[in-house]
């Protein structure tokens, strides 16, 4: 089965539909935040997987810098694009959640802000990749920039959380009820499978492009 990732993607989609249905209809209402809290079942999985995506691009970057084999460069390219899509979606979800809950479109939630800054970094790296023609230089320079951007996440998280804690006290509520944990975990894996489909397909596209670019 050559393009196995299509089946993985479909499985993920199915799980996502079921998990979301469960989260929307079956899971109990959160005591304080009411139904708005149900956004969590798609928001938190997207957050985890976006961070996973950027970590995968860091792995790709280190892989390329050490071995210079093209498969790592494909990984960088596909995870950056996927991370940008899921990262941007995450910001939109965060805003939609924040409006009814705290009355503002954007709360300086440290996790969300760290991912948003990461998305901006990777937007820059995507621009860098499009401004460099030589494939080898493009791979090496974007790998270097990826390492710098990824290493920066803890600093961003630390500073934002500390700045936020000095001035306001919003933070997302901790979920306890097991009926809530089930759809959350299910959707987390669902989004993971969908992201694996995105990254694998992006990987194959990058490989074809590079084959043509490096054609004899």
């Amino acid at each position: 089965m050559r393009r196995w990732e299509i089946w993985v993607g479909l499985l993920g989609l199915g799980m996502l539909v079921f998990g979301s249905y469960y989260g929307l209809m079956v899971a109990p209402r959160e005591v304080y935040m009411g139904d708005v809290q149900r956004i969590m079942y798609v928001h938190v999985p997207t957050a985890w997987n976006t961070l996973l995506c950027f970590t995968a691009s860091f792995v790709g970057a280190v892989g390329w810098l050490l071995t210079r084999s093209w498969k790592w460069d494909y990984l960088i390219e596909s995870t950056i694009i996927t991370g940008l899509v899921t990262g941007s979606l995450l910001a939109v979800q965060g805003a939609i959640w924040a409006k009814p809950t705290w009355g503002v479109w954007w709360t300086w939630d440290p996790r969300l802000t760290s991912v948003a800054v990461m998305v901006l970094s990777f937007l820059g790296i995507l621009a860098l990749r499009s401004f460099v023609d030589d494939p080898v230089k493009r791979a090496t320079w974007s790998a270097t920039a990826t390492v710098l951007a990824w290493v920066n996440i803890p600093f961003v998280y630390l500073c934002v959380r500390w700045m936020a804690s000095l001035h306001q006290t919003q933070s997302t509520p901790k979920t306890v009820d097991p009926a809530m944990v089930f759809p959350l975990r299910l959707n987390a894996f669902a989004v993971l499978f969908v992201v694996i489909f995105f990254v694998a397909t992006g990987w194959r596209i990058a490989r074809e492009q590079r084959k043509r670019e490096l054609a004899e």
Partner: peptide, 9 residues
């Protein structure tokens, strides 16, 4: 020894 620049040797 070979050197390629973006697809051209």
């Amino acid at each position: 020894v070979g050197r390629r620049f973006a697809g051209r040797w």
